[in-house]
Nucleic acid binder design. Sequence first.
RNA 1: GGCGGCAUAGCCAAGUGGUAAGGCGUGGGUCUGCAACACCCUUAUUCACCGGUUCGAAUCCGGUUGCCGCCUCCA
Length: 466
Amino acid sequence: MALQIFNSLTRQKEPFVPLEEGKVKMYVCGPTVYNYIHIGNARPAIVYDTVRRYLIYRGFDVTYISNFTDVDDKLIRTAKELGEDVPQVAERFINAYFEDTGALGCLRADAHPRVTDHMEEIIEFIRVLEDKGYAYESEGDVYYRTRKFEGYGKLSHQSIDELKVGARIEAGDKKEDELDFTLWKAAKPGEIQWESPWGRGRPGWHIECSVMARTHLGDTLDIHAGGQDLTFPHHENEIAQSEALTEQTFARYWMHNGYINIENEKMSKSLGNFVLVHDILKQLDPMVLRFFMLSVHYRHPINFSQELVDDAAAGLERLQTACFNLRHRLGVSADMGKDTENWLKEIAGIRTEFTEAMDDDFNTAKAISSLFDLARLSNTYLKEEQTASEVLQKFLDLFEELSDVLGFSFGQEEELLDADIEALLEERVEARKNRNFQRADEIRDLLKEKNIVLEDTAQGTRWKRG
RNA sequence: GGCGGCAUAGCCAAGUGGUAAGGCGUGGGUCUGCAACACCCUUAUUCACCGGUUCGAAUCCGGUUGCCGCCUCCA
């Protein structure tokens, strides 16, 4: 079964066939960097990072581009409020973005282009649109002549007239048609601005993605992705701009992830329930947040609440414990297992299960259930009195292989204990041997206070950080 | 008004024609000196409701109800 992707353009799953065999050009709309990212921004970051990892796992050569919108109205406003200039604000939140998404296990894109580094290309792009009759200047602004683009509405599946019903009509509008959107915006005095054929100004909202995608990936992308809310108008407008200019298909597969609600409510500024990744990670293991995000299919809405996060943490811990227990056993027991072939076959079967889930439009929820199957299987194996190192190692390898695709890391740093704690551990072994359970329990309690949890097994006592 | 989505156990969540994955939680049991970890069993004769198609539907069709999103800045 081939990899299938749900394409927003056709509203159905399609076999994924990149334009150039073996190579994938992927563009993900990045944030406007006027604040720390919230968990709604974290979802696409995590989801498409996982898509990318899986494509790589499947053997594709992926070029992954994700932009920063580092100039726009919100940035200008924020800079004003903070008494800084726009580049300063952008720089700070770009750094914060890397810090936050890095903690969440997201790999760096092959490039993170910024709007302000592409002014020449943007101006040139608009100029060509103007030449072709798709753009017109009006009092220093430049607008896109929406009605001229035949396919307008094909992504959001709306006809232009349906869209028009909902369009806002502003008094004294400089546009020819209320559906026309801004390509270039004349600057007000004091605002950040660039020289252009239409006077000093800055780019409109949608043009930057068309330009940066083309600059870094060429005329046709394999995958263009972003949040569901970007479908209209952002992505619709990108298509109009790019396809008017190049007369080529802009993106072949469009992916859109669902929203996040907070405690069953839409996250919004007015409700005051914005959850910033920067804040939540102070009290939440980033891997738990990632696990939580991937435990629901990316196109479905997801509800964020303390209770659900706690559930996710418990689930993730089960997987971590399974790995931990495998490592302990690998370190202490002899290499003597039976039925090795059968176990190896079962392990391999789980890889297939996982791949089939991911092939089906990146069904990470189902893929995660394969990890749980793997945990159950390995835990069952650990009940055997005799184990084979080869099998234990294969279990660990598959855990690592699959969790790496999902971007989880089950930390395994070899830690050393202080000498006095080692001494207590040894004393406890003696005490238990002598059936001095009172002393043994005393030591266990003592270490628990130091956040070291002891577990007695048939293969000796193991410890972990609580 | 237009376009679209969702409704599966206490909670979360897969599942798009073949007789309900998985996780968390619950209850019982096994293991253990006691724990912990783990394992086994338990928790939906049923998938919002009503019709229809079919040998067979959570899955397809029609209708009803409820919730949500987009059409306006937004991941």
